[in-house]
């Protein structure tokens, strides 16, 4: 197995401590990281649910500037391939960390919490509610653009946005401080992440309908 240069370990070329398994900022060597490093490791930030979005972005840009294949066009084939792979890893890590839902999902998985399908049994009252949202959207879809059925979408979207914000803050409450691996609280987080998926699906459909309306008005 390839050795992974986790943050705090030494660069195999210059022995400086590295802050990411992708790159040595001291001697500029691109490191042969194992596939799928922890996104927190990849960006060299402390694992935690709350995240400083500005600092994260700055970190991405700093590392990209050194790792990106465009800055290695004169290097040998192996280095160029590594630059490409590590840049892809870095971007994938950023995508996860910059999204509250995906970051929480990653944390639950990494702490050996339940997966989406392990926790599929949602309360039946909640699912009945999801049916109702979907029915409201379906009625609106079949109705003309300025009909009362369409007007129902606005309050539904507002209430779903509020519900989403509430559930995401309940998730945040449970992930600060970071729970231990296998902690029972991870189950509570997974249930809430699943609820957010249903909310997002309906919000996505409402957005699609509005987009279709906007483009037909043009």
């Amino acid at each position: 197995m390839e050795h992974q240069h986790a943050p705090g370990e030494e660069c195999p070329k210059c022995w400086a401590k590295v802050s990411t398994p992708l790159f040595c900022e001291s001697c500029k060597a691109i490191l042969p990281a194992t596939a799928n490093p922890s996104p927190f490791d990849a960006l060299g930030v402390e694992p935690s649910y709350p995240i400083d979005a500005m600092a994260l972005r700055k970190r991405l840009l700093t590392l990209s500037r050194q790792l990106h294949p465009d800055f290695h066009i004169h290097a040998d084939t192996g280095t160029r391939a590594l630059a490409e792979r590590n840049t892809a890893e870095l971007n994938a890590a950023f995508e996860i960390l910059s999204d509250d839902f995906r970051r929480a999902d990653w944390i639950v998985k990494s702490l050996a919490g339940p997966s989406e399908s392990d926790e599929r049994q949602m309360p039946s009252e909640f699912l009945a509610e999801v049916m109702e949202w979907n029915e409201t959207v379906e009625d609106a879809r079949d109705a003309p653009a300025d009909s009362p059925a369409r007007a129902e979408l606005d309050p539904l979207a507002t209430s779903l946005e509020e519900q989403r914000a509430r559930v995401m803050s309940e998730i945040s409450d449970r992930l600060v401080p970071l729970p231990e691996a296998h902690a029972p609280v991870l189950r509570e987080v997974r249930r809430r992440l699943n609820a957010v998926r249903y909310i997002d699906r309906t919000l996505g459909e409402i957005a699609e309908l509005r987009l279709a309306d906007a483009s037909s008005e043009r």
Partner: peptide, 13 residues
């Protein structure tokens, strides 16, 4: 019976 698939947000009655 009302059930759902959290993988995709599908719901079935």
């Amino acid at each position: 019976g009302v059930v759902g698939a959290p993988e995709c947000g599908d719901v079935m009655k």
